[in-house]
Amino acid sequence: MNKLTLTVPSSKNAEDWFLFVNKSLEHLEEDITELIIDFNSIYFLNTDDFVVLACLIESFYNESCVIKFIGGTEKFNSHLDNVKFKKYWSLGFKREKFTLSYNKSTLCLWKISSEMIYNYSDYAKKYFKNTFLNDKDLVPLASNLGEVFNNIFDHSSSPIDGYVITQYFPIKKKLSFSVCDFGIGIADSINNYYKQNSLKKIEDWEALLKSITEGFSIESTPQNRGMGLSHLIDFTESSNGELTIISNNGFLSKRFKKNYSVGHSNFNFKGTLIKVEVDTNTFDEYDESEEIYDL
């Protein structure tokens, strides 16, 4: 039996995380039969850490590895139990059917499946409305979750579909969701499109900027109009929020009212990570009164 222990970084630094992912994936060819995820002294993981880790574990699980967990502080293990994280790769657990978490502020980790995109988005809206945000209009949250999911299926060609997790922070009234896939990555996908159209290759961070530009599309389907990720930036800008995209050798971050932060990363992440954080105080009030409008 080939055992492999992966020690999860306690760092919050993206570079540390993606170097960890790349180093870990090098072992995929080694016929590993048991993967041990060691949380060592970890007491907290952000939504982006969770989805990156879930994609990494999924990659090994797809190679028929048994997944085990060790380490982590008592409080952190209690959180993992509440969100059922350790059960996801148990035999028979349906990761693509979302399941309720015991932690009220976290909407379960979900392995994205194309058939259930609308169900998850709609459920996220209903869930947070019924728990913390009953006076708020959560339709933009649902439609933007859909935008990110559609992006995965349109552009990633991911061997695994990807993971999402959504969490509400009641004290700050902030909502965060992260989506990750280990596909070809937005930047490579755009550069492939450029190559097919005899256009000059652009830097990965430039490709990420392109991806959120209104009207830019790689035309992966005839109806693509390049409105999806630009919609997402509108959402974070109108919600006092922040959008972060990491893909291939590029990163992009845009915080409300600040300039874009873009650049070349010191790691090559084969895939795409999108993290959205919004301030729910800025959401419109729930609105039920209907009128007839002329367009």
């Binding site: 339709v139 933009p140 209104e214 009207g215 419109d284 009164s289 209907e290 009128e291 409008y293 367009l295």
Partner: peptide, 29 residues
């Protein structure tokens, strides 16, 4: 043509989102 054939009954929030989409679509495409 769309205006002359279609009216919408909905909430103000929903209508604002549709109008916003139409403005963006017209501007970009």
């Amino acid at each position: 043509v769309l205006r002359s054939h279609i009216k919408i009954k909905t909430t103000k929030n929903q209508f604002d989102r549709i109008v916003n989409y139409i403005s963006k679509y017209e501007r970009v495409h």
